[in-house]
């Protein structure tokens, strides 16, 4: 934790959490906790339940067993997490800036300005372009920009580097590192190894493998 801490001290704690779809358990009973400024990397083969775990933590899928809680969060402050899934939630018929403005408006424009966020992800020249013309990697960058315009302490990232080039890979690392600097939490499911400058901040959980 550094002086740039902006989030209240939250921690995510899961006890005996079993996630699954359609009544079938995909993960073993998981116990983990994520504290401010830490990142949990989820690794595992296809179908090992990485996405399901993220959806469970996002409140979209009900856990089969066990509990998890975001300790220290205040229900008054509204949703505390950003979910960034496989699908980018980018509307092809809106321009890049309109897409981002919309999410800033409905999630609360508490973070960077639209221009600054677009610059961060390298789309600053494309603000007026219809998002339908973006490449897969650029759409991904726009999805990541959504995390920057509204400050929320917990990031749930599902394959954040999918479709991104090497520079985009660095971008994800940089954004993640920044977020952790501010006292944020992150859980990322990924096949690409993400290496933060300070490896002590990362913890890896391998799903699917029996302990």
């Amino acid at each position: 934790m550094t002086s740039r801490q902006v989030f209240p001290p939250l921690s995510l704690r899961a006890t005996g959490l079993v996630c699954g779809r359609g009544g079938m358990a995909l993960t073993r009973a998981l116990d983990f906790s994520v504290t401010p400024g830490r990142c949990l990397l989820l690794r595992g083969a296809n179908g090992s339940g990485k996405t399901t775990l993220l959806l469970t933590l996002a409140g979209i899928v009900a856990p089969l067993d066990g509990v998890f809680a975001l300790e220290g969060s205040d229900a008054e402050t509204g949703p505390a997490l950003h979910y960034c899934g496989h699908r980018n939630a980018v509307k092809p018929r809106l321009t890049v800036a309109e897409n981002l403005c919309f999410w800033a408006a409905v999630n609360g424009a508490t973070g960077l300005s639209i221009d600054a966020a677009l610059q961060q992800v390298g789309l600053e020249r494309l603000g007026d372009l219809d998002a339908g013309y973006l490449s897969a990697g650029q759409s991904r960058r726009l999805a990541l920009a959504r995390l920057l315009v509204s400050l929320r302490p917990l990031w749930l990232l599902d394959e954040p580097t999918a479709a991104l080039d090497a520079e985009g890979h660095d971008l994800v690392t940089r954004l993640l590192d920044n977020h952790l600097d501010m006292g944020g939490l992150a859980i990322a499911a990924t096949h690409d190894p993400i290496t933060l400058p300070d490896p002590a901040r990362m913890e890896t959980v391998v799903l699917g493998a029996r302990p």
Partner: peptide, 14 residues
């Protein structure tokens, strides 16, 4: 629903 916006709208401040 198809482009993933609906999941995100469930977590919107609105």
């Amino acid at each position: 629903h198809e482009d993933g916006s609906l999941i995100l709208l469930r977590q919107a401040d609105l």
